[in-house]
Structure formats: C-alpha cells, structure tokens
Design a protein around this nucleic acid. Sequence first.
DNA 1: GAAATTTATAATGAATTTGTGAATGAGGGC
DNA 2: GCCCTCATTCACAAATTCATTATAAATTTC
Lengths: 228, 228
Amino acid sequence: MGSETKILVVDDEKKMIDLVRLYLEKEGFKVDEALNGQQALEMIEKTEYNLIILDLMLPVVDGWTVCKEVRKKSDIPIIMLTARGEEFDKILGFELGADDYVVKPFSPRELVARVKAMLRRYGPKEPSQILEFEGLLIDPESRKVVVDGKEVALTPKEFDLLYFLAKNKEKVFTREKLLEEVWGYDFFGSLRTVDTHVRQLREKLGGSKASTYIVTVWGVGYKFEVGK
Amino acid sequence: MGSETKILVVDDEKKMIDLVRLYLEKEGFKVDEALNGQQALEMIEKTEYNLIILDLMLPVVDGWTVCKEVRKKSDIPIIMLTARGEEFDKILGFELGADDYVVKPFSPRELVARVKAMLRRYGPKEPSQILEFEGLLIDPESRKVVVDGKEVALTPKEFDLLYFLAKNKEKVFTREKLLEEVWGYDFFGSLRTVDTHVRQLREKLGGSKASTYIVTVWGVGYKFEVGK
DNA sequence: GAAATTTATAATGAATTTGTGAATGAGGGC
DNA sequence: GCCCTCATTCACAAATTCATTATAAATTTC
C-alpha cells in the first residue's frame, strides 16, 4: 500500500488538515497540504497525486472550481469534504467530477476506508483481471458475466459478490466479512441478506458447472471453489 | 474464540454498560466496566485491555481527559460514545486520539461490527497457517481437510477441534480445556461431548495414517501426535 | 483376576443453520 | 407521476449439526 501513494489535502482549516494527515500517514500515505484553491491548483500542476481530498468551502478559488479545473486534465480520484447541511452541494460535486464525498464531521476510519476504496478502484491500475473458469467468465471492466458462452445479467450487488468471491477463490468468508468487504464498512443490515444474494447468484449461474462454484461452508459462510 | 480479548466499557449509566456488555460477551469478549473516568484510568493502569469503549460525558474525569491520558502511554484502540447533537465534540475526540466513535442511540450490531473492525485492524493478527502432516492437510482459510489426497467433509466443530489440536501438536489438553478453547468460555456442557467429536474425527480421518494422530492420553485428555 | 474408573461407540431428539418464496420499499428511468 | 428493478427483510421449510444419554469396551488399581 504505502509504496508512495501521494494524497493532497485541501482545506482552509489547518486543524482539519492536521487531523486528516494524522490518520492518513498512520496508514502509510504521503500527505501534502494546500490551504486554498489557488495553491491547490499550483501543486497539482507540479506534482502527480494519486488522490485529492477537497473541502468545498475554500478561499480564493472554491472547491467546485478546483474540481472542474482538475477534471480538464486528469482523472485523479477526488473526495469532497462537505459540512452537514450542504447536502445539496453533493449533487453538484458529483456533476463536476468528484468521485466521492464525506460529510463533516467524519470519522477517520470512514475517511481512510473511502480513500482506500477509491484507490483500489481508480488508483494505480492493477490490471482489472478477467476471471475465467470452466463455463464461467467474469469481466470486471465491462461487468459482464458469461455462463456457458451466454451472457447473464447480474445486478450490481450480485456482480460484486460474485467477483469478490471468485477473486478470492478457495477462501471462506463469513457473512459478516462479506458484508464488510462487498457491501461496505458502513453497512449494518441483516446477515441473511448475503444468503439471498447467494441464492440469486446460484440461480442465475444456472444448472451449468458454474452453479457449483459458490459453496456453502456450513456454520461458517461461503466460498468460491472450482472443485474438480 | 476463547483467546481472551478484554474490553473496558466506561459509562456512568449502568444500564448502558449492561447493554453493551450483553452484546460484547455474546461475541466472546471479556468485558470490564468503569462508572467514571477516575476509575477507568485506574483500571487501565492495572490491566491490559485490547480496546476501550468510552462515553464522553463522565463524572469526576471526563472522556476527553481519559482519552488524552491513555494516549500518553498506549495505542489501545478507543471507541467514543457520543450522544446525538454532540457532533462538534467528535472532532475534538479524534484530535485527542480516539479511533472511532459511535453515536447514541446505536444498534448493537453496529457497535460490535466497529469493535471487531477495530481489533482486526489494530489488534494483533496471527496469520492462519496451513498445517501439513503425512497423509493429512488442514487449511483453515478454505476450511478444507485432505486425507490421503482426498477431501473430507468435517462439521464446524470437528474442524475447529482438529485444527486446534493439530496447531498445538504434542501438547495434551484436558476435556475441560478443550471445551474452553474450542467451544468457548461460555459453554457449560458435558465433558463427554469432547469424546463424541473425537470419535467422529477419527472415523472421518479414516483408516489412514491420519487416524492415528489424535491420541487418547488416559486419565487426562487428548493430544495430536505425529508419532513415527 | 475383579472392581472401579475411564474411554469408545451408537443412537436420538433438540437446536442451529441454511434454503426458499414472497412482500416491502427505496430509487432511477421514462 | 408511474413503472420497473433491485436490495433487503421476513417467515417458514429443509437440512445439518450438536449435545446428551445409554451401553459396551478398555484400562488401571488393588
């Protein structure tokens, strides 16, 4: 992880920057800071960052403008920081190219989790691997799944679940762990939700060999297993 | 399970403590309680906890102070409990070294999930190891057991028992100790239960060399022994 | 060698866990 | 606004495992 992942934090409150820096550095990230939008744009010009954390309310040049400017030249992931009550701005932020937002006050765990999720997704592109098994092909790029040569339509959650299990084949996950990994650290719903999605998946994978891949490990959870 | 993870819960409302205790103990954690900040600090001094759950509003010494004091000496994960509306305090809490916060009223699942997440991240982690012996392979990640090249299906308890014994090979355990370690500290059933599971295991490990590994130590208990 | 203690075997009902069908409700597209 | 999809939850059925009991076998002790 910490192999030189550079993050730029833009906020006019020094205290906030320090807080964010504290937790990001604990995770091994390299952190730079900018106190206003103007400065931020200059720094982005000079240095190649892997991710930008951007407060909306900035002096000189506001967050939206920074966002728009950055997007003209690059696809760096941007996480916006917004104060509660600025909910409306959220939409605007997304339209202008932000990839995620976090509402202040936030928990460091939440921010770190989102940063990591973002980097996993957009960061130093580990070639998104096409997974292939007998009678089953999973392409994360196009989010396409092919069973016995025929494309099968999966819902987003179904796809994410299948892809996660397949990517970590032979490894058992508890329902709790799956909720955390596939649904997200901030989902606290019922464990049985996992069962339902597994069922849907098995059904959609049909009577073919593919339907045998998702295995119930009784008393523990599920795993993806190729078998023999 | 059973490996003694100790959590200190600090709150001036006994009712709140009981609630938290209920859910944490159900998960196998050992829970201590303190009703005020002063008491909390004394307990932390004497005992080594793996995690602290800390209410902000405390008599004698408040949550912030406790947090600051703890941080002077240790990196124990701290989860803060705050009442809704104390949003502002959240930031302050983080600056003082809290690792996460939960807003009251909270769902027990949420609290437990956060506790576990915290322990996973900061707690000590032992890598799960594949154990291999002549004619027997035990993989805790996939929870697979292979005897003489053929996979054998074990029930959860059988697997846990076998893995525990094998991981601690050459060491004798009384039935009592096994119940505590494999079943959990809160299991108060018959000692004979262990016998039953040992028998099942031996049967499933078949006539091969593997079936000789679980050894009865007469008058004491069982051990896993590779022999010659 | 017999009695006493400890362990092995086998069977069964209870308890836990998972599968299944269906209902609800949120959110997006038209 | 309306319909459709998807995610989630619930209730119930099915499957599996678990703990216990009773009885037989083994081992020790005297």
